[in-house]
Design a protein around this nucleic acid. Structure first.
Lengths: 119, 119
DNA sequence: GCCATTACTTACAATTTTGTAGGTACCATA
DNA sequence: TATGGTACCTACAAAATTGTAAGTAATGGC
């Protein structure tokens, strides 16, 4: 999130994120791996290393960045246990749980279209 | 969509798009300006220039690219009239119309979270 | 012939996103 | 003293996305 040229369309896009509830929502879940991470955390807490194992194809850096973004967006809760070696657990928030019924609908829409497309 | 290194995580991401209905759906609507364009086309046909006027902040190039993507994804129908100067009209497809109820829910989820966030 | 209009496309440059490789801190155990 | 485990972070590089400016084709009107 570095400084950015004023009035670039990147900035304009951010403005629309702050003005449009829909863009705002899509932005929260539209990241590269966010949905997969959210899916993985559905129903269970997981530690960083456990997530890393599940997503062997995501780099640590990206996993970390995406988790941080999800945390900032209030979709994931991060709990740090003051132990050595460290232990950190990730779990979904209320907000993320409320999202699931909608995502399920979106998913079945996607499935329907996917079938159509493959004909 | 140029050639790409095999087995990069970009490729992996594309694989997940082809395997997960939800990612597939989000991918179709998650582009930079796609939702705004879809919103604008809700209830009416519009010509390229009309869209351009509405989105004075999107460059012609991006508008063109996004429309093309939406067309390929089957969300927008493009009709060309063989006239001079040319006339091209864009409108939503059935598939896009089916999406609206879901997007409305997502939108109100977004609105709710946005309020929470601003407290 | 020259200009205007429409709906684009193209080459090139800037910006953002993602990947790679290495490093950090802490303490327990060998 | 050296090694291992956890949960990261950092600098630098590659790749993808977006922006900028200019150009194209066809034809009607001046």
């Amino acid at each position: 999130m570095a400084a950015r040229k004023q009035n670039s369309t990147y900035t304009r896009n951010e403005i629309s994120l702050s003005e449009c509830d829909l863009s705002y929502a899509i932005n929260k879940i539209g990241g590269r791996w966010k949905l997969q991470i959210l899916s993985m955390l559905n129903n269970k807490k997981l530690r960083f290393t456990e997530l890393k194992k599940e997503f062997s194809f995501i780099t640590e850096r990206m996993l970390s960045l995406q988790l941080r973004a999800l945390e900032q967006d209030g979709l994931v809760k991060r709990t740090v246990y003051a132990e050595i070696p460290p232990r950190v657990e990730y779990e979904l928030t209320e907000m993320a749980l409320e999202l699931w019924p909608i995502l399920n609908q979106l998913s079945s829409w996607g499935g329907k279209q996917r079938k159509r497309a493959s004909l």
